[in-house]
Simulated assay, not measured.
Amino acid sequence: MSLQDKLDAFKADFEGKKAPKQAVEIMHRATAELIASGQADHALKVGAVAPSFTLAEADDGPLSSTDLLARGPLVLSFYRGVWCPYCNIELEALQEASAAIRATGAELVAISPQSLVNGRKAKHEKQVTFPMLSDPNGEVANAFGLRFRLPDDLIALYKSFGVDLAVVNDDPSWTLPMPARFVVAPDGVIVYAEVSPDYTRRPDPTDLLPVLEQLKSSVAA
């Protein structure tokens, strides 16, 4: 089953059986507004130079993009956090694909605005073996053009669900990144970019493999 199939199955169950109709309407409206805003069109695209960064990893201290790129291509997966079931399904899919990604010589890291404590929780619960980085205040996500503020009615809904992002992210801004995935070549240029203003839709990790194999071949040549 593809990642999107799993996301669709979860969405159908959650929206069809568990979530109140009014809650579903609020979530759908917020997604539609984000799509209509066109913000995804302003995120970094193929051909752009990726911003450099240094972020703390859930278990192993700071990691810099410069050091990671010195090892080979870099796969960046931006996600919302441990509280988001769609993100947890995606983390599992990335973990399943991580060996194939590493086999191309690439490094895979996940980036979210959640605190280190919550990043560590997600990493251990999902048995993730690749680095999970904490992006304080979403600054790196903002540099990639991904950060946005949730609308007030969605903030109130999340709070009613017991999801207080001010606590989860140790940041009162109630901002999140749009889920996104980038492949950055060793020279720092983005060669693959997928941004999902609809957080329930995400590309399959295996979509990265042809791009990474091509990078591997070009380096070998």
Rank of each mutant, 00 (worst) to 15 (best):
K11E: 13
G47L: 04
E139V: 12
E33A: 10
G47T: 08
I111V: 15
R80M: 09
H42K: 15
L116R: 12
G81D: 03
S37D: 11
Q127C: 01
E33F: 00
A12V: 07
D41C: 00
V189K: 15
L116C: 03
L150S: 03
P20H: 05
R181Y: 00
Q39V: 13
L116M: 07
L215R: 02
R102G: 11
Q4V: 06
K121R: 14
Q214C: 05
K216G: 14
A43W: 03
E139I: 04
Q39A: 13
A100M: 10
A166S: 15
R201W: 03
K11A: 15
D198Y: 03
L212W: 09
C87Y: 08
A36S: 15
S112G: 11
W83L: 01
Q4G: 07
I190L: 09
D5W: 00
M132L: 15
W174H: 06
A48Q: 13
R147H: 06
P131V: 01
L74Y: 09
A56I: 07
L209P: 05
L212P: 09
Y192C: 01
N169K: 13
K45D: 04
V163Y: 14
A43N: 07
G145A: 11
G119R: 08
A50K: 10
A103N: 07
S134E: 07
E139Q: 11
V184W: 11
I89L: 15
L215I: 09
Y199V: 05
